[in-house]
Amino acid sequence: MGAQVRRLRLPGRPEQVRTARRFVADALGAAHVHRDAAVLLVSETATNAVEHSGSGGPGGHFVVTVSHTDAWARVVVADEGSTSIPCFCRVSVESTEGRGSELLDGCASRWGFTRGPEGSHVWFDVGTEPSETGRHPLPDRAEAVAGGAPGILEP
């Protein structure tokens, strides 16, 4: 059976992060083995879209796409872009912010982002489904595009 795909466009407001979580939970269904991890990570990535991109500005929006089978899920959060460079830095134990990359590292099988003139796409995979070659059918770990040139980001 092929992957199922669902997409939802949301206004770039903080209260819409809850809607993004519910959307991913509903798309995967209560029995999906990776549902909780996907919901946690979409909460983080949607919050970042609203707080750190043009999506959080007047009239802004972000798009959540869920692709999944029973064994894996990929979630992509597309935002309206930013002029700042994402920070994948370590934070102090007292900090209440800046743990997004640690969550992605700890809960996702793979994750990464692309950035272009139209905006950014942050994606993560939970679970794996081997292809005929024994590799996951989706791109490798932390793929990044900055300024139009592909590169690898090691968080």
Score class of each variant (00 low, 15 high):
residue 106 G to R: 08
residue 117 P to Q: 11
residue 17 V to W: 04
residue 153 L to A: 11
residue 62 F to I: 04
residue 153 L to K: 08
residue 30 A to S: 08
residue 101 S to C: 14
residue 104 L to A: 07
residue 25 A to V: 00
residue 59 G to I: 09
residue 62 F to T: 05
residue 46 A to F: 04
residue 38 A to F: 01
residue 19 T to A: 14
residue 108 A to V: 06
residue 9 R to G: 09
residue 153 L to R: 10
residue 37 A to L: 07
residue 81 G to R: 01
residue 70 D to P: 08
residue 4 Q to G: 12
residue 72 W to Q: 09
residue 116 G to T: 02
residue 45 T to I: 04
residue 114 T to W: 02
residue 34 H to W: 13
residue 54 G to D: 08
residue 140 D to C: 13
residue 25 A to N: 05
residue 13 R to S: 13
residue 11 P to Y: 06
residue 68 H to L: 03
residue 139 P to S: 07
residue 65 T to L: 05
residue 142 A to W: 12
residue 91 V to F: 06
residue 60 G to F: 06
residue 24 V to E: 02
residue 64 V to A: 02
residue 109 S to P: 02
residue 37 A to W: 00
residue 141 R to Y: 11
residue 39 V to H: 00
residue 133 T to Q: 11
residue 116 G to D: 12
residue 128 T to H: 14
residue 27 A to R: 00
residue 68 H to T: 02
residue 74 R to F: 00
residue 81 G to P: 04
residue 90 R to F: 09
residue 6 R to Y: 10
residue 43 S to E: 13
residue 42 V to F: 04
residue 41 L to S: 03
residue 127 G to Q: 00
residue 54 G to C: 09
residue 118 E to Q: 12
residue 154 E to R: 12
residue 106 G to N: 09
residue 83 T to W: 14
residue 59 G to E: 04
residue 148 G to E: 08
residue 98 G to F: 04
residue 138 L to V: 12
residue 104 L to F: 03
residue 93 V to Y: 12
residue 144 A to N: 06
residue 148 G to P: 01
residue 125 D to T: 02
residue 79 D to L: 05
residue 62 F to G: 04
residue 8 L to H: 05
residue 50 V to D: 12
residue 138 L to N: 06
residue 16 Q to R: 13
residue 15 E to N: 13
residue 46 A to G: 14
residue 77 V to E: 11
residue 87 C to A: 15
residue 104 L to D: 10
residue 155 P to V: 09
residue 21 R to Q: 14
residue 142 A to D: 15
residue 132 E to I: 12
residue 138 L to F: 08
residue 98 G to R: 04
residue 82 S to C: 09
residue 13 R to M: 14
residue 14 P to Q: 05
residue 67 S to A: 15
residue 85 I to D: 15
residue 35 R to P: 01
residue 21 R to P: 06
residue 84 S to W: 08
residue 82 S to K: 03
residue 85 I to E: 15
residue 21 R to M: 15
residue 94 E to A: 14
residue 94 E to W: 12
residue 79 D to H: 06
residue 59 G to P: 13
